[in-house]
């Protein structure tokens, strides 16, 4: 799974929930991996690429606010693998 850095989804909470969900099912031996993905964008004003960091999500070079934080809020299942 990929958890956007700005998603409010906690890595630890996800692992805890997934681990408990599969207990006693055919997936009980499954391994889960959650990677946290940084939210980045190219500044609309000065074109510098920067990491969207709370609390202001602004470009560190020129102070322009990020255009959108939506990418960094996504939490999704990237893939599963098995035989």
């Amino acid at each position: 799974m990929i958890a956007g850095e700005l998603s409010s989804a906690s890595n630890r909470a996800l692992m805890f929930a997934l681990g408990n969900l599969v207990k006693g099912t055919v997936l009980s031996e499954a391994n889960f991996e959650v990677s946290v993905r940084e939210a980045r964008e190219k500044c609309r004003a000065c074109s510098r690429e920067f990491r969207l960091a709370p609390p202001f999500f602004c470009c560190p070079a020129c102070g322009k606010p990020a255009s959108s934080i939506e990418e960094g809020r996504k939490v999704y299942i990237d893939y599963y693998e098995g035989e």
Binding site: A9, K74, V75, Y76, I77, D78, Y79, Y80, E81, G82
Partner: peptide
């Protein structure tokens, strides 16, 4: 086999 889903949880 790896199956890519890229499915959002909040979809």
């Amino acid at each position: 086999m790896r199956v890519y889903l890229a499915k959002e949880l909040l979809e």
